[in-house]
Design a protein around this nucleic acid. Structure first.
Lengths: 193, 193
DNA sequence: GTTTACCCTTAAACTATGTTAAGAAATGAG
DNA sequence: CTCATTTCTTAACATAGTTTAAGGGTAAAC
């Protein structure tokens, strides 16, 4: 099994030995995910971390009225999982599904824990990965509490220009915490300067 | 130097040997921080991670109009730092200051990196610490994009009942992303059921 | 123990965002 | 290629949250 994109990703943080690479490959699965296919359903256990090699997935929750809220997008090079549920073993409250045809590398909980024990630098690598994601998320919180929808949309376009091309605006609106109708108005306002 | 609260904190994740405890103590400083004293100023470098043993600190940014936005509170048992700036070595955009008289244990960057190299289980421990903080932050983002101010305030009270006693409402409003005036209205609405 | 600075509340007018509904445009599946 | 579905836009009206201003209450600091 060829997990090269994932290996490359790890090696962008720290070099790995041949043995380590082989051990990682032996514990990773490659999976093709079709558009709209779910890899996690609310109420089920989140059994794996997923690394996105191609395409894009989203994690979202659905409230009692059936409204969806996008918590996270994960495109090429990003990770996605319900981290809390993954470690606690409790049923997830979130869904994860592909918004485009995608290829992901998944690591099951037992395999990830085994890898942590065998390759201690993976603790370091994942610590750095999640630190980076933490900082991103903190910036998002800051945007949410300090900026108008216009500013948040402009920031999103600046920070994720590729996603803007690839995602329908309904999905972006859900991520920004506004309605698609209002996003439409925001875009009109911004387009005429 | 007695860093027992910090040692206890680490040992709530994984046990440490005597040698490890001593090494940690040798790289940690205990600091008393007075109310309103700043331990980080925007424009300066964030040189240390701080573990709060007593009291409470906040991290906030100030926009061009002089308005403050509270990104995070850290009370007993929590960590606080501008993680992005700490690792990148770039000037911070945030302030960190005590909202109560506090006692913190600080670790300088060089010391923390040294500890990571000498005690590899600290990579694991900090990975878990930040995973937990990530999950908390993700829930906060979800609240921000899905809930009204009333719901966000109720959640805050539920999740941080002690902080509600200890912080002025202005600080909580800034954390929730609303004005103090509107929080006052929210509190009135909620108080009469 | 005053005094000063900060904090809380209220209310009216204003602005940002949500809701509903409907038609037009774009896109995916067969 | 074409149908079915999803997405985008517009507009009128409704609600959530802000601004400004003012008075009274609390708590920190000297």
């Amino acid at each position: 099994m060829n997990a090269q994109p994932l290996i490359d990703h790890f090696e962008s943080f720290l070099p790995l030995s041949d043995t380590e690479r082989q051990l990682i490959e032996s514990r990773v699965a490659r999976r093709i995910v079709r558009r709209k296919e779910e890899i996690l359903r609310a109420g089920h256990l989140c059994r794996h971390y997923s690394f996105v090699a191609e395409g894009c997935l989203k994690m979202y929750v659905v409230d009692t009225k059936g409204v969806n809220y996008n918590i996270q997008f994960a495109a090429e090079g990003d990770w996605i999982a319900d981290i809390g549920g993954f470690h606690s073993g409790k049923p997830s409250q979130a869904f994860i599904e592909a918004v485009e045809p995608s290829i992901v590398f998944t690591i099951e909980k037992e395999d990830l824990y085994h890898l942590y024990r065998s390759i201690s630098k993976l603790d370091r690598i994942f610590k750095v990965i999640i630190e980076n994601k933490f900082v991103e998320l903190q910036n998002r919180v800051l945007q949410n509490i300090s900026s108008t929808a216009h500013e948040r949309y402009r920031s999103f376009v600046e920070q994720y220009p590729k996603l803007v091309q690839r995602l329908p605006n309904t999905q972006i609106a859900s991520y920004l915490g506004i309605t698609p109708e209002f996003l439409s108005k925001v875009r009109k306002d911004l387009s005429r300067h």
